[in-house]
Lab assay of single mutants.
Amino acid sequence: RLRTTILPEQLEILYRWYMQDSNPTRKMLDCISEEVGLKKRVVQVWFQNTRARERK
């Protein structure tokens, strides 16, 4: 499996959503993934990793 590259524009959108809610619902993940143009699972893992980084 290839690692997904997240573009700066996509990152900006993801962080904007993250500021609103760091733990989005499944429905929100659907909306975010549509807006960003990434698979739902990629967005979900990005949120998990970002929460983990914040805890450090």
Rank of each mutant, 00 (worst) to 15 (best):
E35N: 08
A52D: 14
V36W: 02
L14D: 01
L38Q: 01
Y18W: 04
R41G: 13
L11I: 09
P8W: 06
N49Y: 04
K56A: 15
P24A: 00
M28D: 09
Y18T: 03
L29A: 01
K27D: 15
S22G: 08
E9P: 05
L29C: 05
L29R: 03
G37R: 03
I6K: 04
W46E: 03
S22M: 08
D21I: 10
I32W: 02
R26V: 14
Q48F: 03
E12S: 01
T25F: 02
E12H: 07
R16F: 07
R3M: 08
V43L: 06
N23L: 07
M28R: 10
R41Y: 09
K56V: 01
T4A: 08
P24L: 04
V36R: 02
V36N: 02
N49H: 12
T25R: 05
L11Y: 09
E54I: 06
L38C: 06
D30R: 10
V43C: 08
K56D: 07
E35Q: 10
D21P: 01
L11R: 13
R16A: 07
L38G: 03
E34K: 11
C31I: 15
E54S: 04
K56S: 08
L2Y: 14
F47G: 02
N23W: 10
V45T: 09
K39A: 11
R41H: 12
L7R: 14
D21A: 05
L14H: 03
T50G: 03
M19K: 13
K56L: 11
L38E: 05
K27M: 06
T50P: 01
L29T: 01
G37S: 00
Q44V: 06
I6F: 09
D21V: 06
M28G: 06
R41D: 14
Q48P: 01
R41L: 08
L7H: 12
R26L: 14
E34W: 04
D21F: 01
S33N: 02
R51P: 02
R16M: 11
K39R: 09
V42P: 00
E34R: 10
R51M: 04
R51E: 03
A52T: 09
L38T: 01
A52H: 09
K40S: 14
V42C: 06
Q20S: 08
R55F: 10
R41T: 14
M19A: 14
K39P: 15
K40L: 06
V45A: 08
Y18V: 00
E35R: 01
